[in-house]
């Protein structure tokens, strides 16, 4: 590019930048992307919050959900949420959280019923996500809550009743991060501790996979 053409090019470029800056005053910086229509958003906006935002109209009971659960969920979770193999257990674990073996289930751990609805709706059944209807989702959610003795078999779960379901571990969480929770500052460099003992050795456990290629 000759020098004069370069100058001309630069002038045009600067004009464009000026135009973009002016547009920024109107709230659009680059003018990229299209306005998303309500219909477009609705197809993907599948989340539900604890306050009920996002829960759609519809309903179901545990009685309705049992058959769906047995057909769609029980192969992994067991008919009563007791789990098959290493798949997640959905029931039990009450009073276990402070023990040496916390069992974190919907009943013992989950703070909000909306999370259960949201997760089933978006990710279950495993391998066939988003295939349950809204009513089926309410019904299966109700069934899992029922298995945990949190609602009655005929309790009608819907957008009004779901946020009010009392979850036992609702107050079991600390929202604020208290870290750093170990000593900070200038680290010790010499003579920092007394006698050192080996407390655990990994080799005797023999649970490390052999190192061959996958």
């Amino acid at each position: 590019m000759s020098r004069s053409r370069k100058v001309a090019f630069l002038a045009v470029a600067m004009t464009l930048v000026a135009a973009a800056s002016a547009a920024a005053l109107g709230g659009e910086r680059y003018g990229l992307g299209q306005q998303a229509s309500p219909a477009l958003i609705a197809g993907w906006d599948i989340d539900a919050r604890p306050d009920g935002q996002g829960l759609p109209p519809g309903q179901g009971t545990a009685a309705d959900g049992e058959a769906v659960f047995v057909e769609r969920c029980a192969t992994c979770h067991g008919e009563f949420g007791e789990a098959v193999g290493r798949y997640p257990v959905l029931i039990g674990g009450s009073d276990s959280l402070a023990s040496s073996n916390p069992v974190k289930t919907v009943g013992s751990y989950w703070p909000y019923a909306s999370t259960l609805w949201d997760y089933i709706h978006r990710a279950m059944p495993f391998g066939d996500a988003q295939s349950l209807s809204v009513d089926e989702t309410y019904a299966v959610t109700a069934y899992v809550l029922y298995l945990n003795d949190l609602v009655a078999e005929d309790f009608v779960l819907n957008r009004e009743s779901l946020p009010k379901v009392d979850m036992p571990n609702r107050n079991g969480f600390i929202a604020e991060d208290p870290r750093p929770d170990t000593p900070v500052g200038t680290p010790c460099m010499a003579d920092c501790k007394g006698e050192t003992k080996i407390m655990f050795k990994s080799k005797p456990l023999d649970v490390t996979p052999e190192g061959e290629s996958n």
């Binding site: 989340d47 919050r49 604890p50 306050d51 935002q53 959280l97 402070a98 023990s99 916390p102 974190k104 919907v106 751990y109 989950w110 703070p111 909000y112 909306s114 999370t115 949201d118 997760y119 990710a123 079991g172 969480f173 600390i174 929202a175 604020e176 991060d177 208290p178 870290r179």
Partner: peptide, 29 residues
């Protein structure tokens, strides 16, 4: 939005159970 969603991955998972059974929830760093 104006509040967290409390999704499965920030309630039932990725929360840190302390010895007393209480769990730290938003431990991001």
């Amino acid at each position: 939005g104006d509040m967290p969603w409390h999704t499965r991955e920030e309630t039932s998972k990725y929360t840190d159970v302390m010895a007393n059974g209480k769990a730290r929830q938003f431990t991001w760093v």
